[in-house]
């Protein structure tokens, strides 16, 4: 297998997202083995700073899709632009994050171009003449190794935070613009408004210790001991999405891709399974402690210390221990 590789870039405030650096590392290694070119597609309205950074970041080509109409994310326009870039650059492999962007634009481009997409991967490699991925299944309690069997282009989305971010040797990348006549596009959707950011009384992103609760805690009436432990450790209480959805805690406490990213010194995950959408946003914490009754829970994969057990027994024991100390 060979052919060019394209990475779908994610950037914010002129900075590259880590997922893009991770995919560039992977893409570079594969393109070097194949003897092919690695490109990055940047979409937006003011993308010069990102394009400048990418020019010397180890890729061969920067595909720049710049247009005032691309200022705000539009699934429809981003899909059109990405499909155009893939058609022009003709990659065999398109890499993207298992992120909001990858989840929405990825499958659309794959179907539109008659390619093959595999999502939610934790790794990928070319083995002989085949593309082999590892991906999450069954709530993350299982992983499967799969060979892509359909037609190219192959589109693969990867969970953020798993692939290494190697320092790539600088290259003088060519910049090519992806020209699109967006004014001539017959749009089927219209952005009415953009609502920003979560507000709440507490800011979990500043806490040094987070006692974080998941659905496994069992109910809103069971939360007090977790608050007590957080207080004993001088920290705050945080949670997974279902806990906020069910109203056990306000959304200001939620950790994950739809809410806040946190990096406390200590993160104690209590009855949280460890879905990628949660883990992505807490994986860079200092020390991660996971308490879960299921020894197969994927949260143990990111933890430094693991306890297989009932949180409703372990937490009171920890509070008692804290009182002793």
């Amino acid at each position: 297998m060979n052919g060019n590789i394209l990475v779908l870039c994610e950037h914010k405030n002129a900075e590259l997202d880590n997922i893009t650096l991770e995919l560039m590392g992977k893409g570079r290694a594969m393109a070097d083995v194949w003897g092919t070119r690695l490109a990055v597609l940047v979409i937006g309205s003011d993308i010069e700073p990102v394009v400048d950074t990418l020019k010397t970041s180890g890729v061969d080509v920067v595909l720049a899709a710049q247009d005032p109409a691309l200022k705000d994310y539009s699934a429809e326009l981003y899909t059109t632009v990405t499909a155009k870039a893939v058609t022009e650059f003709k990659p065999t492999l398109v890499l993207m994050g298992y992120t909001y962007l990858g989840m929405e634009v990825g499958p659309a481009v794959a179907v539109r171009l008659g390619g093959t997409m595999v999502t939610n991967c934790t790794d990928l490699n070319a083995v002989d003449d085949k593309l082999i991925v590892t991906r999450n299944m069954f709530g993350g309690t299982l992983q499967a190794r799969m060979e892509l069997a359909g037609a190219p282009p192959y589109l693969v989305s990867v969970e953020k935070g798993l692939l290494p971010r190697p320092e790539l040797p600088s290259k003088d990348a060519a910049v090519e613009s992806i020209a699109i006549d967006l004014a001539g596009e017959n749009l089927h959707s219209k952005i009415v408004d953009i609502l920003s950011a979560i507000s709440g009384k507490i800011d979990i992103t500043k806490a040094k210790v987070l006692v974080s609760i998941g659905r496994g805690v069992g109910g809103p009436e069971k939360i007090q001991p977790f608050r007590d432990l957080a207080a004993a450790l001088g920290g705050e209480i945080s949670c997974s999405r279902p806990v906020a959805d069910m109203g056990w805690l306000p959304v200001a406490h939620q950790v994950g891709i739809s809410a806040s990213t946190v990096t406390p010194d200590i993160y104690i995950a209590c009855g949280i399974s460890g879905a990628s959408q949660h883990v992505t946003a807490m994986r860079d914490s200092g020390t991660i402690i996971a308490i879960n009754k299921d020894p197969k829970a994927p949260i143990f994969r990111v933890a430094d210390y693991g306890i297989v057990g009932d949180v409703l027994e372990v937490i009171p024991a920890m509070i008692a221990e804290a009182a002793k100390q």
Binding site: T141, Q143, R145, A149, G150, K296, A297, P298
Partner: peptide, 13 residues
């Protein structure tokens, strides 16, 4: 046609 061929499964932990 199938888009993938599953080679093996294992526990992530």
């Amino acid at each position: 046609a199938a888009s993938v061929k599953i080679l093996e499964i294992f526990t992530p932990t």
